Each structure stands twice: as C-alpha cells, then as structure tokens.
Simulated assay, not measured.
Amino acid sequence: MNPPRFQFEVCANGVESCLAAQAGGADRVELCAGIPEGGTTPSFGDIATARSLLDRTRLHVIIRPRGGDFRYSPLEERIMLEDIANARRLGADGVVLGCLTADGTVDLPLMGRLMKAAQGMSVTFHRAFDVCRDPFRALEDIIGLGCHRILTSGQQPTAEAGIPLLRELQKAAAGRITLLAGCGVNVGNIARIARETGITEFHFSARETVESDMAWHNDAVSMGGTVRIEEYTRPVTTERRVRDTIAAAHKG
C-alpha cells in the first residue's frame, strides 16, 4: 500500500512567517492578520509582498473583515467582495472564507455571491464550520457550493480533541471535498490525527516566540488599552518547526 500523500498548510501571521513556511517545506500558506481574533484579512502590502517572494508555496488569503461571529451585514459583504478582488489582482492562489446565518447554518445566498467572485481560485471554508449548528448538514451545503476544502477542528478547541467528529466527517465527505484538520496541530499529535481520522491535509502555525530588540520598554502603556497584551514579544513561524511537524506526519 502506498503511503498517504499529505498536504501541509501553515497559518502565517505575516510575510516573515510565509517565508519560513516555504523554507520548511509547506505546500501552501494561509496569510492572516489579527491572529488573536482567529484571523482577519491581511493588508494589501502583505499580500503583494508575500506573492512576490513565494515561488514554491501556494498563497491563500483569508477574507474576514473583522473578528467575532460569522454573520455578515451587506456592508461587510461589500468589503469581502473588494478583498477577494484584491487577492485575485495580487495573484493569490486561493481565498479562505465562511459565512453563517443567525441560526447557525451556512449562509448559502451570501456564500454563493462570494464563490462567484472567487471563481477560478481555490476556496477553503474556514472554521466558521466549527461553530455551525449541524456539521453534517453544513458539510453537504459546502460541497454543494463548490468549495474545495473545509478547515475544521471537529468542532472542538483543538483538532486532536475533535478526532471523533473529524473521523465521521471524513467518512461522510467520501472524497467529495477535502477536510483540512487545523487548530492545535503540532509535532506531537499530527501523526495521531492522521492515523485516526484518515485526513491527509493539515493546517498549523509552527510558531515560536521572538523577543523584541527594543532596548527601551514602557510597561505602563498597553496598545490594547485595558486589555493587556505582550508588547515586546511576537509569535513567528519558524522553518525548524515547520520541518519537524511535516517529518512527524510522515513518520506516522
């Protein structure tokens, strides 16, 4: 029996992370801003620079105008359509998006309009799937829309915890759409997730914390106001962690 053909996607929080992902052997990156919010649309400059520097790794761009829920207004739809057009103009290979109705089902009319705008590009339905009401109904709806894959943790905080549902979704998909297991995927669990679900595409960040080279710190001021965040460290994908995670999947 031939070994499974894995595909690896790195969730990249900037161009630096995109380049580390490529150096580490990733097949594609999902370029995002706003990682603490679950990912929002990156800047024009980020997309353009990533596209100019990535020559072996495919570039997918998240289309998400804000954090929070996945119920979007007509104004937000307009923004998303513009962002899809920008991603296309800048040469992105794909987009990553997802929209729900107020009652937790896939917003088929809005998704249909976004799919039309993204025609010819690869489309991933993102982890809005993980907060939908009925994952099996959503699976069928997303297949019907023509999306190429679904990024999911099996409706659990991590993909490892979501293994039971991921296994059932993989069976239900029956080769009609690709499931992309993501959230908390790392060197210590990727082989187990692959083995127990049959999924062959994985989404992970492979980040390490980098200390700021600022000599002067003013710890009395937070750019988040009353929300305290780390101002003098930042998480960045590293080539080493990407390579190690990919190697762990292949070792099984």
Rank of each mutant, 00 (worst) to 15 (best):
E160F: 08
I35N: 12
D219E: 12
G252P: 04
D103C: 08
A85Y: 04
D46I: 04
G24M: 04
R240L: 13
G224M: 05
T41W: 04
G112C: 02
A92G: 02
A191L: 11
L180Y: 02
E239M: 13
H126Y: 08
L97R: 08
S17V: 05
A174V: 05
I193C: 01
A249M: 10
I199A: 00
R243Y: 05
E30N: 04
D93P: 09
R133V: 12
P42A: 03
A159G: 15
A26P: 02
G25D: 04
A172K: 10
I246V: 13
T197N: 02
T105C: 13
E196D: 15
I177N: 00
F125L: 07
D55L: 10
T49K: 12
R51P: 10
E140A: 10
H126A: 06
G104T: 01
S212W: 13
P36I: 11
E211I: 08
A85C: 09
R56A: 12
G188Q: 14
A181C: 07
R71C: 15
D46S: 15
E82Y: 07
G224I: 04
D141M: 11
S73D: 14
P109I: 03
V96I: 15
L165D: 01
E82V: 08
F70T: 04
A85G: 09
A50R: 05
E82A: 14
A50Y: 06
P3R: 10
G182Y: 00
H250W: 12
K116E: 14
A118Q: 06
A174M: 05
T238W: 03
T197R: 00
H250M: 10
R78C: 10
E196C: 02
S17K: 03
N86G: 05
L81E: 12
L75E: 15
Y72T: 04
E76T: 02
L166W: 01
P3Q: 11
D141A: 15
G184C: 07
V210F: 14
A33P: 02
R71N: 14
H203Q: 00
I193L: 06
V187K: 14
L75C: 11
V61T: 06
A194N: 00
A220D: 10
M121Q: 15
G144W: 13
T238H: 03
P109D: 02
D134F: 06
A181D: 03
E168M: 09
L165S: 01
G45K: 09
T233P: 07
A215F: 13
G91F: 11
R240G: 09
H126L: 04
E239C: 14
A85W: 07
Y72I: 03
I177M: 01
V187H: 11
I177C: 00
L166T: 00
S212Q: 09
L100K: 05
R137T: 08
R149C: 13
P235M: 12
G67M: 06
A20C: 13
V187M: 14
I84A: 05
G182E: 00
I190P: 00
R228H: 14
